[in-house]
Design a binder for these strands. Sequence first.
DNA 1: GAGTGGTCTAGACCACAGC
DNA 2: CTGTGGTCTAGACCACTCT
Lengths: 265, 265
Amino acid sequence: MNANARDTNQGAASDAEQRQELTREGSSPTFSPLYQQIKALITQSLQTGEWRPGEIIPSEIELASRFKVSQGTVRKAIDDLAAENLLVRRQGRGTFVATHHEDLVQFRFLRLVPDSGEQEHPPSRLIECRRLRAPAEIARQLNLRAGDSVILIRRALDFSDAPTVLDEIWLPGVLFRGLTAERLNDYKGPMYGLFETEFGTRMIRAVEKIRAVAADEAIADLLKVPVGFPLLNVERVSYTYGDRPVEVRRGWYVTTRHYYENELS
Amino acid sequence: MNANARDTNQGAASDAEQRQELTREGSSPTFSPLYQQIKALITQSLQTGEWRPGEIIPSEIELASRFKVSQGTVRKAIDDLAAENLLVRRQGRGTFVATHHEDLVQFRFLRLVPDSGEQEHPPSRLIECRRLRAPAEIARQLNLRAGDSVILIRRALDFSDAPTVLDEIWLPGVLFRGLTAERLNDYKGPMYGLFETEFGTRMIRAVEKIRAVAADEAIADLLKVPVGFPLLNVERVSYTYGDRPVEVRRGWYVTTRHYYENELS
DNA sequence: GAGTGGTCTAGACCACAGC
DNA sequence: CTGTGGTCTAGACCACTCT
């Protein structure tokens, strides 16, 4: 439904368009529930930036009248989007666009936990940040052409002053034009917060492939462990709206005083 | 609410009891929504075995009249339980109790994936199965007293004929009375299926702590890798109804041709 | 008190599976 | 055709937050 290129139009005018696209029940072949269509419309407004991370979105009643459906249908759409962590409901206050400027969200994407004690925000130490042509493997994972411009960031995370994580972060050059070492160093807060606020790219979900590997010389040196030391190797691909891959991240974790936590449910 | 010891009573008689326990809205302090109370009642029926894994549960309309609430309220309760993977909805057929005798469920608990190709069901090779007194650490994790009877199972999983996983599985002796090497060997199907069918203990969720470690001599021998080889070490605690821990599992994975897959969302 | 999300109800109709 | 879950509506009332 409604795969038009709507770009940046928003407000009452575009709502009228949207309304006309809605197909009610009863059109049996290729049937799509109303609330799914509402979900798509809301997602579009998130994607185009009509409502930005951290901001409040219109109330259920307002959205219901805008889309010409009942409040219950809007409610179901929002429930789904909240379950997908795109929106956050706050009783008595309203519904907000999820943002990476929040502890809970950050720890969804940083699963390394100290053996004893609570989660912490390890300081990030930048090693390098430069543009280059995408190697074939990275290009494939980011859905780019080999040779397209990409940005490579290398950094270390120091938990309790001990280097614990080494990250190699690959980003599409086009989306992150203007990202420099200074911008990274000056920014206070989580990197995904920077990406969402300064570059309009929000990471929604990610898939990680985890292995145990032996430290090679370069990595051992940076992590201050012996060559051959067992490390957790985490390869992450992150996706934004529409399941478009926008980050490849390769991490090496020292797991002597930390562990990677995962819940199966 | 309703923390009575109901044990095995079921049917119309117990429903009457249940009904009387329900508190409607408006009792402001310690307010609990009706659908939460319905959730708890349904969970009880799962726990006591009124409806067993794989079986169909009564229709929404039937449950609504049994609990004297509207169908919508039952629906919300079931929606929640389905989201928690305790129930499975099948349109046009009914709602069923989730079971481990299903591929999809099994792969929720086995996250090791071959580099190329689809998920497979690796054959399990039993190494030993014996009863002993719980070491302090295991007792703590299983909420037992040190010295209580526990069962220790050790086994290997052979992916494509190469030993890939070594597991050390600790279970409370009381719950798994009668579990022997023969029972394990004779049983066709997933181990959690055996546990749920033969011992009435259903694993609902689990938490894993993952590290990279070097293979010691004993493990290296069994996995046919050199001593010191980097392995994924996975420590799992599994929980049944009421978040009671009922299994500790320590695994060592060879990740040269497989990886542990995890989705962050 | 006003506004928001959260709960609960009753009823209508649709899509799907199985007889 | 019947019964199941799935969608949608309209309306009432409650709990929470902020002014």
